[in-house]
Design a binder for these strands. Structure first.
Lengths: 213, 213, 213, 213
DNA sequence: GACTAATCGAGACGGTACGTCTGGTCTTCCG
DNA sequence: CGGAAGACCAGACGTACCGTCTCGATTAGTC
C-alpha cells in the first residue's frame, strides 16, 4: 500500500497519523447517524476535530473516504473452525451478515458500489480493498476442507479453480447482500443453513459432473 | 367506497399525462449521462420540458422518481421457453444481466438500494415495484418445470415453498448483481451456465434431503 | 438605471424589493462593525435575513455591493442656502466631511476605489453612482452664485466650464478625503474655512487671468 | 555535560539580508500582476523564493508588508529646479502623478489607506513612512521660493505655517489622487498647469487677507 | 359565459454543502 | 537557531441544488 518514498524522508512537516485514524472513525460514526447521502465532509471533519483540507489532502472525495472507512470493517472477518466445511461456511456467512447489519456498512457499501458504476477508479478501489482482500476466506476454507478430506486435494485446472473461487464469492456475497439489503429480511441461522446446503450440494454436484453433461 | 380515484373528476385542470411520461424518460436519460449522484431534478425538469414543481407535485423526491423510472426497465423481463428448466433459467438470467448492463439501471438501482437502508418507505417502494413484481418469473418457471415433469408437483409445506422462492430470488439476483457490479466482470453465457448448474444441483440436492442431516 | 423590460412583466416570481433594501442596510451595518476587509457576504446575508444566493443574484460581488451601499449615503448631501457662495461651499464641504466620518463610508469608499484600480467596470460604477451623481452640487452652487451676482453669468467656453467643474470636484473631494482619511485629522469648521478661502480666491484669480500670460 | 549557551560563538544562522529585499520586490511584482485583494503572502513567498514563515517573522501581515513595499516608491520623488515656484510645483506634481500611474502604487496605496481606517497602527505606519516623509518637498519648495523672493521670508505664526503646509499637502495629494484614481482621467500637463494656477493664486490671496474678512 | 379550482411554465426564495483558497501557526529536517 | 518545506486548523469563497414559494397564464368542469 505504501510505496511512496521508501528511503528519503520528504521535506516539511509529516502527515499526522492520528488524523487519518480519527477521520476514518468519524466517517463511520457519521455513516451510522446520517447515512451516506446526508454525510458531509464538513461534518466528518468537525467530528474528527480536523480541518476539511486535511481530509481533501488524503482522499479525493467522499466516495473514496467511505470505501476506506468501510473496508476496515471487513478485516475483522475470520473463518471459524467449527469442525466441518458446512459449519465453517455457515459461521463466516453469519459473520458477514452481522457486519451488513451494522448501519455504517449497509449505507456506505451499497452507495459506494452505486457510485462505482460510473467511476472505474472507485470500482478498482472497492475490489482491491474489500473484495479481493476477503477472498482469503474462501481459499482458507478450501485448504482446511482439503486437510479434513472433505474436498479433493486440487482442482484439475488452476484457472478453473480461480473461476470457482470467484463464483463462490459472487454467490455468497451476492445472496447475503440481497437478502439483507434488498429483500430486507434477516440472514439468520435458519436461512444461512438452507443457503449453505444449497451451495455445497451445488458445488459438489458440479465438481462431480464437470461442465457439460 | 373508493377514496383513491373517485368516479367524479376532481375540479381544476387535470394533470398532464404526457408530463409523467416525459419526466420518467428524462430521468432515465439523465441517469445514463450523469449517474445517480450527479442527477438533479432541475436537470430532469429541463430535459422533460417541465417545471420543477410539476415533478415535486408527483414524486416526493429524487429517490422515488428514480425507483419508478428504473422499475419500468424490469417489466420487459420474461421467461423464455427454451425447452428445459436449466435453459429457461439461463435465459432469464442473461436477460437480467443485460438490463444490469444498461447504465440507467446500474447506477439507479444500487443507489436506490443504498438510500433504502435508511428509508423504510423507499425500501417498500423498491420491494413492491421491483422485487415482488419480478418473482412472477420464479413462479412461472416452477410451474412450467412441473408441467414438464422436471420438478415434483408441489412442495409439502406452502410456507416452505415460499421460502424456497425467496432463496432462489436472493441467490439469482444477488449473484448476478455482485458479478456485474462488484466483481465487475461480465455475466456472460459461460458464467451463467456454471452458475445455473450449481444452483439447480443445489436445489435438487436440497429437495432430496430436506433440512436435517 | 432600470431599462430591462419596461413594459412586459418577466415570467416567474418577481424579485423581492424588501430584500434589496435589507441587503444594503445590512452591508452598511457590517461595514461599521467589521470594515471592508472583514466583511463577508455570508455575514451580510445573515444580517439581512437573506440567502447568499439572493445577494449574488443581484450583485456580481462584494465590491459592487459595497459601492451601491455607500452611494446611498451621499444622496443625502444637499447644498444649503447660507447667503453667500463661500458659506454655501463651506456648508456642503462640512456635510461631505461628516459623511466621511461615518465608518461605513470611510472603510467602504476607499476600498472600493482601491479595487477599482484593477477593475474598469467597478470604476465606472463608482463614477456613475457617486461622483457624477454629486456633481449636481457644484452646478447648483454655480447657478445660485450667478443669481446672486457672485459669478459672471456664463463661462466663455462650454468645454472650459466643464473642465472647471471637474477641477473643483477633484480638489474639493480629494482634499477632504485626504485630510480625513490619510492625514487623519478632522475637517472641522476652521479647516474648511481656510480651505474654502484658498479655493475661491484661486478660482476667481484664475478666471480673471484665463490660462497663462 | 552539554552546554546550551555557548559563550564565544553566537549560535544560529544570521537573518538573510537578501530575503527582505527579495520579499519587497516580490510584493511589488505581485501588486502589479494581481492587485492588493488578490495578492497572497503565499504567492509573495513563492516569488521571493522564501518560506511563508520568513515573511511572518518580519512583518505582522499583508497590510504592513504592502505599505513598506509601496513607501519605497515615493522616495524617488524630488523637487526639480525649474526656475519658478509654479514650475517647480508643476514638476513635482507631475512626478507624483507618474508614480500613481504605476499599478503597484495605485492598488497598494488606496487599499492600505482603506485598511488604515480601522487600524490605528497601520495609519501611523502610513503617515510616518509616506505622508510625513514627503512633506519635505513642500518645505523645500517654500525655502527655495523664499530664496528667489517669490514668497515672504517667514510666516507670522509658526503654528499657522505648519497649518498651511498641511493644507497644501492635503490639497495637492488629494486632488491628484482623486483626479487619477476616482475621476479616472490623466493628471497631464494641461491639468497640472490649471491646478497649480488655482492653488498658487489661492494661497497668495489667502496670505494677503489672512483668515477673517 | 362567468366562476372556480387545480394545473402549468418560470424563476426567485432561504438553506445547505460543495471543493478550493488563503491566513497564520506548527512541526519536521537541513545547514 | 534561521530557513525551506509543507501539513495543520479555521473559515470565507462563489457555485450548485434542494424543496418551497409566488407569479401570470392555462384548462378543465360547474354554475
Amino acid at each position: 500500500m505504501q510505496s511512496r518514498t521508501p528511503a528519503t524522508t520528504r521535506p516539511g512537516r509529516p502527515r499526522s497519523a492520528a488524523a487519518a485514524t480519527a477521520i476514518l472513525a468519524a466517517t463511520r460514526a457519521a455513516l451510522v447517524e446520517l447515512g451516506w447521502s446526508k454525510l458531509t465532509l464538513g461534518d466528518v471533519a468537525a467530528r474528527a476535530g480536523v480541518a476539511k483540507t486535511t481530509i481533501y489532502r488524503r482522499w479525493p472525495g467522499k466516495n473514496e473516504l467511505v470505501v476506506d472507512a468501510v473496508a476496515e470493517l471487513f478485516d475483522e472477518l475470520e473463518l471459524p473452525d467449527r469442525g466441518s466445511l458446512a459449519a465453517d461456511i455457515e459461521g463466516v456467512v453469519l459473520q458477514f451478515a452481522a457486519i451488513l447489519d451494522r448501519p455504517e456498512a449497509r449505507s456506505g457499501l451499497m452507495a459506494a458500489v452505486a457510485e462505482s458504476t460510473r467511476d472505474e477508479a472507485l470500482r478498482e478501489r472497492i475490489r482491491d480493498s474489500i473484495v479481493e482482500r476477503q477472498k482469503r476466506l474462501v481459499l482458507q476454507g478450501r485448504t482446511r476442507a482439503q486437510a479434513r478430506g472433505e474436498l479433493p486435494p486440487e482442482s484439475s485446472d488452476p484457472e478453473d479453480a480461480a473461476r470457482t473461487v470467484d463464483l463462490i464469492f459472487d454467490v455468497v456475497a451476492g445472496a447475503v447482500v440481497h437478502r439483507t439489503l434488498v429483500s430486507g429480511r434477516p440472514a439468520d441461522e435458519e436461512w444461512v443453513r438452507g443457503f449453505t446446503q444449497v451451495l455445497l450440494l451445488g458445488l459438489r454436484g458440479a465438481a462431480a459432473s464437470p461442465d457439460g453433461p
